[in-house]
């Protein structure tokens, strides 16, 4: 059996923020690069490109993952939600509102990832104590050190029983 030759590009269909988009990209394109470079969804950030910072966090079928560590080609039959897909028109998602209210960011670079991670935790119904929240949010590094306020948001969302995007 022969190894297929490297085709320049492959056609893909992704479901992103409720819309189906068609792409023709190299097989080795990460989901992160597909979002940022091919779909202009630049809300998702590239920090390290090596799974170490969480800036690239998006939701796939409601769970948060590092989009730098998966290929777009592996996510074709899933529901992908990025920071751009959380608000409902002009109405921000409650987690987004809470980030503003609690001043939970400074430069904002890590924020889309922090917000998606918070929504993911709510979906997973995890993070039931302050210690657990700190542990489960450790995949998102904030270079500005806005952690105290970020954790306040997560704690408040848990207390209020805020819904993420879906229950999984």
């Amino acid at each position: 059996m022969e190894v297929p030759k490297h085709p320049e590009t492959i056609p893909l269909e992704l479901n992103i923020n409720g819309e189906t988009v068609e792409l023709d990209i190299s097989a080795w394109t990460t989901l992160l690069d597909a979002l940022r470079e091919h779909l202009q969804l630049t809300g998702t950030k590239k920090g390290c490109d090596h799974g170490q910072c969480g800036a690239c966090t998006v939701l796939v079928n409601g769970k948060h993952i590092n989009s730098c560590f998966t290929l777009a080609a592996m996510q074709t039959n899933k529901e992908i939600t990025t920071i751009e897909g959380l608000a409902n028109g002009e109405n921000l998602h409650p987690v987004q509102d809470a980030f503003i209210e609690h001043d939970a960011f400074q430069c904002g670079y890590c924020t889309p990832g922090q917000i998606c991670a918070t929504v993911g935790l709510l979906n997973m119904k995890k993070g039931n104590t302050p210690e657990e929240i700190r542990d489960l949010m450790s995949g998102n590094i904030c270079r500005c050190g806005a952690y105290a306020n970020i954790y306040k948001v997560v704690e408040e969302m848990k207390e209020k029983g805020t819904e993420g995007t879906t229950s999984i």
Binding site: G51, G54, T57, K63, H64, I65, N66, F69, T70, A117, G120, L121, M124, K126, L136, M137, S138, G139, N140
Partner: peptide, 9 residues
């Protein structure tokens, strides 16, 4: 091990 995101993958 790792982080929540990584464990989800």
């Amino acid at each position: 091990a790792a982080s929540t995101q990584l464990r989800n993958m």
